[in-house]
Amino acid sequence: MEKKKRILLVDDDPDFVEINRMILEASDYEVDAADSVALALQQLEQNSYDLLIIDLMMEERDSGFTLTYAVRSDERLRDLPILMLTSAQEKTGFSFLLSEDQEWMKVDDFAAKPLKPAELVARIEKLTGKGAQDAKP
């Protein structure tokens, strides 16, 4: 049997972690969770992942960007696909467009929370499919 794809879910909201974990496990992914930037970096150090799902706002309003920047600056992690989830729109009044903001956000996809399970899975399949080509054997 093919090795399960492994996803790191970074979100400080335990409900969303729980919900997304169940959705992803049901789609046969292996899921780890981290509720802070520090913990996420620690897990990325120790394990190898096929996808990173980050919530933009955790301890700080831009925690997600901090983590993305750290990942993109790391030789070993720079090609790791990232899906940024955000409820930023209603909190800050800002909304993002992939076509306009991808350049500086350096993420592969982003979506507004909450996502319906089917849509989350569809987006993740697209990202991990692409990620699989670069993945180490």
Partner: peptide, 21 residues
Amino acid sequence: HELKSPVAAIAGYLNLIIDGL
């Protein structure tokens, strides 16, 4: 925002059951 968080969580949990997960 404070009202939305718990409602969104409840909706998320209900979706898990509805989607048969």
